[in-house]
Design a binder for these strands. Structure first.
Lengths: 217, 217
DNA sequence: TAGAATCTAGAATCTATATTCTAACCGCCG
DNA sequence: CGGCGGTTAGAATATAGATTCTAGATTCTA
């Protein structure tokens, strides 16, 4: 979808669709394993068993390739979340449950995509398309998360359950990014808590907040 | 300090110290205003009214320059925090006060350094020196923040006041990074709360947590 | 103040990467 | 089959940016 913005013809033959797919996979894997810096056209081509000519025939330029990767990754994550949300048993769900569930779902959905998101954010600073796509995704994720929390927040009797849910969602987002950042920096900060514990604490924080959203003076 | 790791002679003459200083300032300003991508040796040289030869005589290579910038920025931030902490009137300080104070101090100290930190993190992924320096700084900041919270957390009667303070500090850190990320992405996310409001909410969250750190089932 | 040490300028060089171009290859339709 | 688009390969080109080199300028020291 994104790559059509450039004057690149849609593939007509299967083999072409194949190479396009292989290129996308290789590009994604490359960023995941070595970070955005390592995404060179030559390396992508090498890993995808295609040629530089093919890459340009399919994507027009490197930027378009990156956009396509972003599109694919974000869609996958959203789908994964939706999928897991569909499985929730809403009836037997306390507030605490829903918070923990939210965190689990979030983590599963974007497992391993750390570097990808990093790349999108950093380059979003100079690439409007990347940025816009990133916005869309963040908003979508936030909405999905609100969906998870809304019912129990409502039951608890919040004045504005949605607003509360949104704050909680951002909190989760923020903490995740902090965590990602630390792990990106090459392994967790020495002396910091292990991930599971961190999640547990975060859950505590959010639960505490949802149970008591009014300013505490 | 960092630049001595390379075989670069310390300046003997004043003018040399001057150009070193101008180069550092220019490099920092450049990253601040245009992001790390814009940090080219040529541009630094242009903005600092020096020459490429001077830059290499002083820093050895571009990496060392970046390390030096990091050192300077992080030291400045730590000093600023320490400085503000020294002014706190500990006697008249409620828990809520100390949390708000923490957030203010944090914000003041790193005001405008968003892109710099972004650059350090991203490049820390491939540069061990940058990473190590970043760790040191994060730990230092966390300790300073704990210092701010500890007294009131203690008075509230926490079982483990320091642990609670540490969680709160991380939370603040996380939220700040989330905020930075959004602003880096080119202006706040449409529909998101204005910064002050965000700070207020964050304060609420942390206060709620500090008053009730035990898991709420 | 002469000579040595230090420092600066900036042209020239080197390198890594994106991108273009062209010849050959493949698969489908007559 | 024949040939015509669609597709691929990879050598050649273009370019941005880091780094080296050296002549000349400045400051220090005796």
């Amino acid at each position: 979808m994104a790559e059509t913005l450039h004057e690149v013809k849609e593939p007509r033959q299967q083999r072409s669709r194949d190479s396009q797919e292989r290129i996308l996979k290789a590009a994604e894997a490359l960023i995941k394993s070595k970070g955005f810096e390592a995404l060179t056209t030559a390396e992508v081509v090498r890993r995808s068993n295609t040629s530089i000519g093919t890459l340009y025939a399919r994507f027009g330029d490197k930027t378009a390739l990156l956009h396509a990767v972003q599109d694919r990754v974000q869609s996958r994550e959203e789908a994964c979340m939706r999928n897991q949300i569909a499985k929730i048993d809403w009836d037997a769900l306390t507030l605490a449950d829903s918070v923990r569930r939210l965190l689990e779902i979030k983590q599963t959905a974007c497992d391993g995509d750390d570097r990808l998101f990093e790349a999108f954010v950093v380059h979003g600073a100079t690439d409007p398309v990347l940025r816009a796509q990133g916005y869309r995704h963040k908003a979508a994720v936030e909405n999905l998360e609100v969906e998870i929390l809304l019912k129990s927040a409502d039951e608890i009797g919040h004045a504005d359950p949605e607003a509360a849910a949104r704050v909680a969602s951002r909190l989760a987002q923020a903490a995740q990014e902090e965590y990602v950042q630390r792990s990106l920096a090459g392994g967790p900060l020495p002396g910091s808590a292990p991930p599971e514990l961190l999640l547990e604490r975060l859950a505590d924080v959010i639960i505490a907040y949802l149970k008591n959203p009014a300013p505490v003076a």
